[in-house]
Simulated scan of single mutants.
Amino acid sequence: MTREPVVIVGAGQSGLAGARAAMDAGLRPLVLEAGERAAGSWPSYYDSLTLFSPARFSGFPGMPFAGDPDRYPVRDEVVEQLEKYAASLGAEIRTSTTVSGVTRIGDGFDVQLAGGETVHAAAVVAASGSFGNPFVPEVPGQESFGGEVLHVADYRSSQAYEGRRVVVVGAGNSAVQVAYELAAVAEVTLATRAPVQFLPQVRGGYDIHFWLGRLKLDLLPPAVLARLFSGTPVLDTGIYQSAIESGQLPRREMFSAFDADGVVWPDGEREPVDVVLLATGYRPHLPYLRDLGALEADGMPLHRRGLSTTHPRLGYLGLEFQRSFSSNTLRGVHRDARFVMGALARRLRR
């Protein structure tokens, strides 16, 4: 049995940012990643996924993206960047290592691994993201539906849906991007509870992320953002909004129920559907903390700005709106990592 100053669960963008911040704070991190690669969930995202932020705003401290800084990197570029960054850190990173539980022992923790090993840690940072916990809303009649229901977490490309009738549920970036992609090969309707909000990708010749940084909007606390937007706006160069307004990508109010052959729209119309694709978001994936007493009944972490309110030496990284609009993004997680690791380092030195 060993004792590590800080164990970080997850080697995606949040875990790697945490490892860098831990070392900068004088801590020796051990990063545990369930997947086979030090890239978190990125290798499992859909094939065409493209960042909504340009390369110049999406790099890591000390390792910017190579090439045109104004391009929008695709999934495989991000995976490669994460693996390069992981290799450059000099931190111990164990892949194919699943954390099955965390138990409080004195001031620290026992971290149980699926293979039976136990690692003692003075502090733990949960950076396992949310990809492993897709949110699936309950809709009446789903058990009778004879078609296919899947979450966007299981979607890879449009090829398998050519010529089929598809309803995509959701009003966020991924929902609109995937629906637009599918509309080129299938008959698609976008189902949302409210009209899609769009935010121009470029203003005054600069990408919106330039203005987010210049105007400090990236740093706004979640409560302020909630007053500005009723949801997360879709970043758009104009193609998505045009597709919806022209009818190329029809949008309807969220259907009220399933039936055996399809969906029932709010006006009572029944429409045959082959596939319902849920782009309905995710929830934090923290099953290993379930018995620690650190979570709410619904599995959400009890925290303030990424620091546990139940365990002084427990932290979180990569939670949506953890401290700001950009908390769970490539461009923003490093700020949160410095804050959380700095606080944990101070607590460990008391």
Rank of each mutant, 00 (worst) to 15 (best):
H120N: 14
Q142M: 14
A19C: 07
E253Q: 11
L182D: 15
E77N: 04
S246G: 05
G172A: 15
L190R: 09
V273Y: 02
P233F: 06
V178L: 06
P61D: 05
G318L: 06
A179L: 13
D24Y: 00
E269I: 08
V167N: 08
R305N: 08
P222T: 09
G281Y: 05
V125P: 00
K84A: 13
T95P: 00
R214A: 03
P54H: 03
A39M: 02
D24M: 03
A171D: 15
D107K: 04
S308A: 11
R37C: 03
G12V: 07
E138P: 00
D298P: 01
A160K: 12
G12R: 12
E187V: 09
T98E: 12
E143V: 11
V7T: 12
S41V: 04
S58N: 08
S174A: 14
S53C: 04
V340M: 03
R227M: 08
A123Y: 13
D274N: 02
R331E: 12
G231Y: 04
L82A: 07
D68Y: 01
T237R: 04
D154M: 10
H120F: 07
V276A: 05
V234D: 06
N328T: 12
Y288H: 09
D336Q: 03
Y85T: 10
D76G: 03
W42P: 00
A179V: 14
V139P: 02
V149M: 09
R104A: 11
F198Y: 10
P195Q: 11
S14P: 00
S128G: 14
A345Q: 13
A25N: 05
W265A: 07
L289V: 11
D267A: 02
F198L: 15
T280H: 03
S48Y: 06
D68H: 03
E162A: 10
A243F: 08
V79I: 13
V263N: 10
S174K: 13
F65E: 04
P140V: 12
V263R: 10
E269C: 06
R203T: 12
Q142Y: 05
V74L: 04
A194R: 14
P195A: 13
D107E: 15
S14N: 07
A243S: 12
G116H: 04
P5A: 04
V340R: 01
Q81M: 08
Y161G: 08
H334N: 15
V31C: 01
L150H: 07
Q177F: 02
V264M: 06
L295I: 13
R28K: 15
F131C: 01
S96M: 13
T309E: 09
R283W: 02
A226N: 12
E245Y: 01
M254W: 07
L212G: 07
E33K: 03
R305C: 09
G62Q: 11
D218R: 07
T118P: 00
Y316F: 14
A91I: 15
S14K: 04
N173D: 11
E36V: 08
I105F: 01
V168G: 12
A243K: 03
Y46A: 09
V31R: 01
